[in-house]
Structures are given as C-alpha cells and as structure tokens.
C-alpha cells in the first residue's frame, strides 16, 4: 500500500467515525420523547459515516502532486455531492428535480467555488512573493 493510499484510508476511517458521531448527535437532538431506534435510524447514522469518510478521505486529492487546485477541488466535490444526494434521498427529504435539490446543488457548487477561489488567491499571493524573491536573488 502506498503512502497516499494509507493516508486516504486513515482519513476515511476518521471521517467515518466523525460522520457517525454527527449522525448520532442529530438523531438524539431531533428525537422526541417517544423516540425509537429503528433500522432507518441505523441507516441514517451509517450514511452520515460514509459521507464523513468520503469528505475526509477525498481531501487527499489535494495531496496528488501533479493535480492542480481545480482538479483536486472537483475530485473532492463530486463524491461528496453524490454522498449528500444519497443521504438526503434515503432520509426522504431530498428528491431529485425538486426545488430543494437545485438549491442544494447550487449551494454546494458555490461553496466549492469559494474554496477553490480562496485557495487560488492564496497560492497566487505566494507565487508573487516567490517571483519577488527570485528577482531580488538575481539582482
């Protein structure tokens, strides 16, 4: 197993645990007095875990040396978004083609565009500084 794969596995495991924990927290917070732990409840917690695993494990896309920021961000977005759709659909509150579906899709895209832009601007600033250093070195 390569270092890269190991890192993805470790992060996915952590993400899964966090996802499950958040799922349990939401379940407890939203449960009424007459709550019952059903198979559906278990499925929701597991989907939360999978979502967490994909979100955190997918962050290794930023570690792939050859990939630019755009490719890394898209690689992170796609599985995370699919997991989100899946979770909403299985829980019954996100139907494909519904208004909420499109609102959430646009919201996800905007969030990832913002992530990409922030990172891009940050790196651009670093590159500018490096060019200045280079110029100073050559004088």
């Amino acid at each position: 197993m390569t270092k890269f794969q190991k890192k993805a596995l470790i992060l996915s495991s952590i993400g899964f645990v966090i996802g499950c924990a958040i799922g349990i927290f939401i379940f407890i917070a939203t449960a009424g007095e007459d709550f019952r732990f059903s198979q559906m409840s278990l499925a929701e917690i597991l989907i939360g875990g999978i979502y967490g695993a994909l979100g955190m494990g997918g962050s290794v896309s930023y570690d792939v040396e050859q990939w630019g920021l755009l490719r890394a961000t898209l690689t992170h977005l796609i599985p995370a978004l699919i997991a989100f759709y899946l979770m909403g659909y299985l829980q019954g509150w996100l139907m494909p083609g519904s208004t909420l579906f499109w609102i959430m899709t646009v919201a996800w895209l905007l969030v990832y565009a913002a992530i990409w832009l922030t990172m891009y601007l940050g790196w651009r600033r670093k590159i500018r500084k490096m060019n200045e250093e280079l110029k100073a070195l050559k004088k």
Partner: peptide, 30 residues
C-alpha cells in the same frame, strides 16, 4: 514562477523549459 488557471504551479527556466511544482514543496522553495 507562475500559477495556471487550473491552479497548477509552474516553473519557467531561463532556457525556455518549464515544469510543474508540487504544492507541498513550495514552503521549502520559499
């Protein structure tokens, strides 16, 4: 040094060659 629109860092050499840089080594370069 240059940053492409896709967010890849590139190095341009004096002889016209160019290559990409892994982000994790940027700190070391700086």
């Amino acid at each position: 040094f240059d940053l492409s629109i896709t967010g890849t860092i590139r190095i341009y050499f004096e002889n016209g060659e160019d290559t990409w840089v892994a982000r994790r080594y940027v700190k070391e370069i700086q």
